[in-house]
């Protein structure tokens, strides 16, 4: 395998890893809680892209909807439905976890009147 083929075969994973690390950096380095949640969403988006790219097949494979009258179905003609199913549910769960996180952040804001982490952790910050 030449160098070029290696890069062409793997570069999609590297893009998702860069995206995932952007989200990871936002989660661990940012002080603002909302920015952390946005970082978590970027992280989850990278994982969703990674899973969907696993299901792709080269050689003219199409969406996994079996054409009518196709008695002997060849699995190589249709892309893998399994990652799409898993990520379909993961997207909806992502939205609901985002909602719960926003609700918790709203409660934190009501108690501390700030969303900056270092100000929340200061002693006596509670109002």
């Amino acid at each position: 395998m030449t160098n070029m083929e290696f890069i062409i075969g793997k570069y999609n994973y590297w893009i998702y890893i860069v995206l995932m690390m952007i989200g990871f950096y936002a989660m661990i380095a940012k002080r603002n809680l909302v920015k952390k949640i946005v970082g978590m969403n970027i992280f989850q988006t990278a994982i969703i892209l990674f899973f969907v790219s696993i299901g792709s097949k080269k050689g003219g494979a199409t969406i996994p909807i079996i054409r009518a009258g196709d008695e002997a179905v060849n699995a190589a003609q249709y892309i893998n439905p399994l990652p799409h199913v898993l990520m379909l549910t993961a997207i909806v769960v992502m939205v609901s976890t985002f909602g719960v996180a926003m609700a918790l952040i709203l409660m934190i804001y009501r108690k501390y009147r700030t969303l900056e982490e270092d100000e929340i952790l200061k002693p006596g910050a509670e109002t």
């Binding site: 909806v92 939205v95 609901s96 609700a103 709203l106």
Partner: peptide
């Protein structure tokens, strides 16, 4: 379920 959950979460977050 998805429809009701999305509407409920959105309305609750929108108006606190």
């Amino acid at each position: 379920t998805v429809m009701a959950v999305m509407v409920s979460i959105f309305l609750n977050l929108l108006s606190a």
